[in-house]
């Protein structure tokens, strides 16, 4: 595989598959932790896209910097989200999304 752009399109297929898997995970499940796992999948897909975009246009160093920053941000994000899930678990004694129906109107 010598053409960088060809590699980009092939990887794009994987990115799209990962994204579909993540979205499926978010929209089908009723479990809060699984929703977070779905979000993780989506962010992983985007990370892959950034890496391969840098490879395709010969700016790999820059895309490395982006990806490392992104990983740090993602960890913080998921840590906070998991904290909120734990808080919800303490209140509801369950991880069911269907229990989150308090706010309406």
């Amino acid at each position: 595989m010598t053409d960088p752009l060809a590699l980009f399109w092939i990887t794009c297929v994987f990115v799209i598959m990962l994204m579909i898997a993540g979205l499926y995970c978010i929209f089908v499940t009723y479990n809060l932790i699984r929703v977070l796992i779905g979000l993780e999948l989506l962010i992983k897909a985007v990370t892959l896209l950034l890496v391969v975009a840098g490879y395709a246009n010969n700016h790999l160093a820059r895309s490395q910097a982006f990806v490392i920053t992104l990983i740090v941000m993602e960890v913080i994000f998921i840590a906070v989200a998991a904290g909120i899930v734990i808080g919800l678990y303490y209140h509801n004694q369950s991880l069911d999304v269907r229990k989150l129906r308090n706010l309406k109107g």
């Binding site: 989506l42 950034l50 840098g54 808080g87 989150l100």
Partner: peptide, 28 residues
């Protein structure tokens, strides 16, 4: 907590969208 969780889900989707868009723009 419920409001925050809804915000997290939508905001994460927005973040993923922004990042994919940045990746495509970066590619170009």
């Amino acid at each position: 907590l419920e409001g925050a969780f809804k915000y997290i889900i939508l905001s994460a989707l927005a973040t993923v969208g922004i990042l994919s868009s940045i990746a495509l723009i970066f590619l170009i």
